[in-house]
Computed example of a mutant assay.
Amino acid sequence: MPGSSDPNATAEAFAKQAFGNNVPLVVKPVIVKGYIGWYATFSDGTAVTYRPAGAASFRTSDGIATVEINTKNIKILNYNSVLKLKFPGQ
């Protein structure tokens, strides 16, 4: 993803757009290193995770927000892996 002035807002807006018109069954907060993101699951098994900058693993720099999308079709196309998108700052 291209850099943005607010990677958290960009990533979260993208994650919510991934819902389409679907309403999540459950949205749970995800707290990593003191940063609060969320995890949404849907009736078809789809899961969307948003993590703000600083809340990713040690392999991702602290200035990058992340979104993970886990669907059956994405895993088929992505060699059985979830789609991980990174949103850097400028």
Rank of each mutant, 00 (worst) to 15 (best):
M1H: 07
M1T: 01
G3Q: 12
S4M: 09
D6Q: 04
D6W: 00
D6L: 00
P7I: 09
N8D: 13
N8L: 10
T10H: 07
A11S: 03
E12P: 01
E12Q: 06
E12C: 00
A15G: 03
K16D: 05
K16M: 08
Q17W: 01
Q17H: 05
F19W: 12
F19N: 13
F19A: 12
F19C: 09
G20A: 04
G20F: 01
N21A: 13
N21P: 06
N22A: 08
N22M: 03
V23K: 09
V23P: 01
V23S: 08
L25E: 14
V26W: 07
V26Y: 09
V26I: 06
V26T: 05
V27K: 14
V27L: 13
K28G: 10
K28M: 12
K28R: 14
K28W: 12
P29L: 03
V30D: 10
I31C: 05
V32T: 10
K33P: 04
Y35I: 07
I36G: 05
G37E: 04
G37N: 03
W38M: 07
Y39R: 15
Y39F: 12
A40Q: 10
A40P: 01
T41A: 15
F42A: 09
F42G: 08
D44L: 05
G45Y: 15
V48M: 08
T49M: 08
Y50H: 04
P52T: 11
G54N: 13
G54R: 12
A55R: 06
A56E: 13
F58K: 08
F58I: 08
F58N: 10
R59L: 13
R59M: 12
S61L: 15
S61F: 15
G63V: 04
G63Q: 06
I64H: 01
I64G: 02
A65C: 14
A65W: 15
V67R: 12
E68D: 09
I69Q: 06
I69V: 09
N70K: 03
K72P: 12
N73H: 08
I76T: 11
I76H: 11
Y79W: 14
N80T: 04
L83M: 09
K84F: 14
L85K: 02
K86Q: 11
K86E: 13
K86P: 04
F87H: 02
P88Y: 09
P88T: 02
G89M: 10
Q90E: 10
Q90M: 08
